[in-house]
């Protein structure tokens, strides 16, 4: 093996290297700006930069994300685009974060994982044929994250199993964790069944009614191209102009909804429903000025999977 750990800093890279003795000889290389890396790294960071990329003989073999934050509220979608890119390229993904942990400050209390993320990971795994795996950072009886080293036990076993089996995507460590994710999903869904349905910002409706509602907008009739799919998922994003030059968390969240309720195959056009992003407070000219489809910027992430944008004054069909 000729292993290199790519990352933005040595803190996470050294933590990762400590997960298994098989990584003892792995070198560390900082991820550079887009266009300044090995082409296979640049390809992988084209949506966003993962925390860790492991390569063997120059080929990416694993992507890993690590965060202390429970994916809930606005946090849930923030890291998803970079994981989608790895899955699209056939690279297994490990995400290490707490499923439940104490939030501090004025609104002190236990935060729970938004389990739509587990569902999206399961769908990504199925659609791309590559494991997208969540591993829980354990907490103590008070909901505080364990930090005595034992928090790494499970993720260490998984990484060790993957490496010791020659980067086998079907290794027991992956299979076992995917099974655990499914059981967690079922268990948590039984407690909060509302998570099976879309959130209030999302409506699934007849495409014909979407077309009808938009027919008076500029290019509104272009939406008719989307009529080949009977239903559309409309994700309402209520940003005003001042706040719309941004991506997080929306561009990641769109993928969660896409994989759960729209996507049927690895190509973004393979959908059972249209994915429509609706910006009720923004005009198309303002949008194009602030969020252009520019590959050198993260704003290109807006254009990765949706079928159409609906603005206050116009419609923009991206793909059918």
């Amino acid at each position: 093996m000729n292993l290199i750990i790519y990352g933005d800093n040595k803190i996470e890279a050294f933590w990762f290297r400590g997960l298994t003795p098989l990584l003892n000889d792995a070198k560390f290389v900082r991820i550079g700006r887009r266009g300044k890396n090995h082409p296979k790294i640049d390809e992988l960071i084209s949506y966003d930069r993962p925390d860790i990329i492991l390569t063997d003989n120059g080929n990416p073999v694993l992507v890993l994300e690590k965060t202390r934050e429970v994916p809930t509220g606005h946090n849930v979608g923030q890291r998803v685009a970079r994981l989608v890119r790895a899955a699209e390229l056939g690279i297994p993904v490990l995400c290490f974060f707490p499923f439940d942990a104490m939030k501090h400050g004025q609104y002190f209390g236990l935060c729970n994982l938004n389990i739509r993320l587990l569902k999206a990971f399961e769908q990504m795994t199925y659609i791309h044929g590559v494991p997208v795996i969540a591993v829980s950072w354990p907490v103590d009886q008070y909901g505080e994250l364990v930090d005595d080293g034992s928090e790494n036990d499970i993720i260490s076993q998984i990484v060790h199993d993957f490496l010791s089996n020659g980067f086998d995507k079907s290794c027991q460590g992956f299979k076992h964790q995917l099974s655990y994710m499914r059981s967690e999903y079922k268990k948590r869904m039984a407690r909060r069944a509302s998570y099976e349905k879309p959130p209030p910002s999302v409506i699934i409706k007849d495409t014909e009614s979407v077309i009808s509602e938009c027919k008076d907008l500029v290019n509104g009739l272009n939406l008719r191209q989307l009529a080949k799919r009977r239903e559309s998922l409309v994700y309402k994003i209520v940003m005003n102009v001042k706040a719309c030059k941004r991506q997080d968390p929306y561009t990641g969240t769109q993928f969660i909804y896409d994989y759960i309720w729209c996507r049927t195959g690895p190509d973004v056009r393979e959908k059972s429903r249209n994915l429509i992003l609706y910006f009720p407070k923004i005009n198309i000219s303002e949008w194009e000025r602030l969020n252009p489809n520019d590959n050198g910027s993260k704003s290109c992430n807006w254009y990765l999977t949706a079928n159409a944008f609906v603005f206050r004054d116009a419609v923009h069909v991206l793909r059918i």
Binding site: N9, F14, D51, R68, E144, L145, D147, E151
Partner: peptide
């Protein structure tokens, strides 16, 4: 690197590491 070197220095000198926020990353610390 300064963060990692500092942390190891304090640990070697028997200080307790209570918390931390590394630059651009995630550590195991609160």
């Amino acid at each position: 690197e300064v963060y990692i070197g500092s942390k190891i220095f304090f640990r070697n000198e028997s200080w307790l590491i209570l918390a931390g926020q590394p630059p651009n990353g995630c550590d195991h610390l609160p």
